[in-house]
Design a protein around this nucleic acid. Structure first.
Lengths: 233, 233
DNA sequence: CGCCGTCGTTGCGCGAGCGCAATGTTGTAT
DNA sequence: ATACAACATTGCGCTCGCGCAACGACGGCG
């Protein structure tokens, strides 16, 4: 089976909010297209950030890697979304490793090009700042969840987030059209594939959701929300 | 007993790196001094951010609060350090609650004043961005630690961070001159005061550190580092 | 000086969730 | 069509760390 996150006209990305069509074209012309194969590493945690990029089609996975090989998924980057914001402005190190989940087409701006463009288009700087603020809030929320919630609650929260970000509402529920293995859900919630599997099985029996291989259909979002609050399994 | 984090000439803050003395003075003159009492809430999670601030003296604690009353400490803000960076640029909501641990003197810039100043001093914008990048990296590191490490490892990491940030090296170890209760260490590591107390007792018996009430002396930083890597208690 | 509030320690029992192992299922390659 | 690889499920035992309870220690204040 073929999974695809589709593509998006990069000129429509939120980071270009407030720009005219001509201005958007200027940005796109300054960008270097880049294609990443499946499982290709696009950026490595700890390496100096040299470029800022936008996903045009495909899907990136941002990871925190542990010394002993475990990985934690920070977030996915979908078509139209930027990557490498803060970091390229300061030529600091990438805080994450970026991996292409499927064949992915990127638009990349080297650091100096980006800085020159941002001086001419302060609005884009503000848009990028907005993204960063959102990701910061998100990171802090996850820190809190990891520190204070049970696995089932964190899993519920994670599914709800995925629904919002990548959900397509259908007749009998919201479909999460996203190639997610149990292992990936575990890496998103800070758990193990066993516990995730058990929890999902339970929820399936209760009619809250239906899980095919690598696909999830949430039938009762409200019950999921309840589960994300209470600690009852 | 009186704890104090001392004070710092605000003009020496890292956010003014690259500015002349005159320029620094211009910033300070545009700021509104504000005094916060012990335990006073300086900013509330979820509220729209109206100002950017610098701690001149005292100490702030940034918290994520859970619906059921638990709290998680995001970080401390010491003299010379800024607070409210990302958020005020985008007039978004504070992602944390800020609480004065002790009587604290702040310098505050309202959002519009800040934006006007930043347009005249792009270097300060870059400096603030640098801070944000560091905090983002920090937040992601903590997410990873919470998801993959045992309590003892996280506690070791936390103590090492505190040593770097607020440690004063002495004859027989590094003193963490910071009013930290067991509960606060638990809120920093995502654990409980019981487990923290037990772990510290154990380390004290092993001669790794010495704990007085609300003060810690780390005698063997290297052994702490080893503990932060291995999962052995 | 003695009281009291805050903070710290430790014993004990219990439960969430980990992780191995064995087995089942589904899509893909030849 | 068949074989294989990747992914998913479930039983089972065990450990980490939680959380109550009881007690202890310290420091501030009248």
């Amino acid at each position: 089976m073929l999974y695809t996150m589709g593509s998006m006209d990069p000129a429509r990305s939120r980071i270009f909010d407030g720009l005219t069509e001509r201005e958007r074209r200027q940005w796109l012309e300054a960008a270097q297209p880049r294609d990443a194969r499946r499982h290709e590493v696009v950026a490595s945690q700890g390496e100096p950030a040299r470029e800022f990029a936008l996903v045009e089609s495909g899907l990136l996975k941002l990871l925190q890697l542990t010394p002993d090989g475990r990985e934690l998924i920070v977030r996915f980057v979908r078509p139209g979304e930027p990557f490498g914001g803060v970091v390229v402005l300061e030529a600091a190190a990438y805080p994450v490793t970026a991996l292409a989940v499927e064949p992915t087409r990127l638009l990349a701006w080297p650091g100096d090009v980006l800085r020159a463009l941002l001086d001419r288009f302060p609005r884009v700087r503000a848009n990028i700042t907005r993204e960063i603020a959102a990701h910061m809030t998100d990171a802090l929320t996850r820190v809190r969840e990891l520190a204070t919630e049970r696995v089932s609650q964190r899993l519920a929260h994670t599914l709800l987030r995925l629904m919002r970000q990548a959900g397509t509402p259908g007749r009998d529920g919201v479909l999460i059209a996203h190639p997610l293995t149990r292992q990936e859900l575990a890496d998103l919630t800070g758990s193990t594939l066993y516990t995730v599997s058990r929890t999902l099985s339970q929820w399936q029996q209760q009619g809250i959701l239906q899980s095919r291989r690598r696909q999830l259909l949430v039938r009762a979002p409200k019950r999921l929300e309840a589960l994300s609050r209470a600690s009852e399994a």
